[in-house]
């Protein structure tokens, strides 16, 4: 009873989230003191069932927090590819950027989440966008020594320029 709707969402407790929303439907998109919605908390913690439930109830996947954090960037940072897919299916901005110029693909690279990187590439993520410190996804992969991800990125670029 002491947990907020945000914390309940992060715990993955669909039933408790539903109980709270039934009592107060304004909680669906309620932003906490940093602007995070329950959907963002669930996305950050990889709680797919809660994410699906909140989206089905009409939670806004495009809301950004005060420093422009989004559910997509949080899911990408955590490597939660199923959640990334669900959010992209709803038309969220795949190139959304936050307080340090971080985009979903930059976070997926930083977290070394190869499936997420691949999914974002397949859905058209912009590889030219750099962080505020000037790192593109490829440069970041190289700097962090994430060789498999570097290979995926390079192969993607080669495909883009393939005559086929």
């Amino acid at each position: 009873d002491c947990l907020s709707i945000h914390q309940l969402a992060a715990q993955g407790d669909v039933c408790q989230v539903a109980v709270h929303l039934n009592k107060d439907c304004s909680l669906l998109n309620k932003q906490d003191d940093r602007g995070f919605t329950p959907l963002m908390w669930a996305a950050a913690f990889g709680e797919k069932a809660v994410v699906d439930y909140l989206l089905a109830e009409g939670a806004d996947p495009k809301t950004v927090a005060w420093e422009r954090e989004s559910a997509l960037t949080l899911a990408s940072m955590g490597g939660f590819v199923d959640i990334v897919k669900s959010l992209l299916a709803l038309g969220v901005d795949i190139n959304t950027y936050d307080w340090n110029g971080g985009t979903p693909i930059l976070y997926a690279v930083r977290g070394n989440h190869i499936q997420c990187v691949q999914e974002l590439l397949d859905r058209g993520a912009d590889l030219t966008i750099e962080s505020d410190s000037g790192y593109s996804p490829t440069a970041l992969a190289v700097a962090l020594g994430h060789k498999k991800i570097q290979k995926v990125l390079e192969e993607h670029v080669l495909q883009l320029y393939s005559p086929d």
Binding site: L3, H6, Q7, A10, Q11, D32, D33, R34, F36, M40, W41, A44, F45, A65, E67, E69, T73, L74, M77, D98, W99, N100, G101, G102, L106, Y107, R110, E130, S131, D132, S133, G134, Y135, A139, L140, A143, L144
Partner: peptide, 21 residues
């Protein structure tokens, strides 16, 4: 980043520790 139920999730500095380009 360490996730905790007691504070909002946060996104880390993308290039913390890396030299500026």
């Amino acid at each position: 980043s360490q996730l905790s139920l007691y504070c909002s999730p946060s996104l880390p500095n993308i290039t913390l520790g890396l030299p500026a380009t």
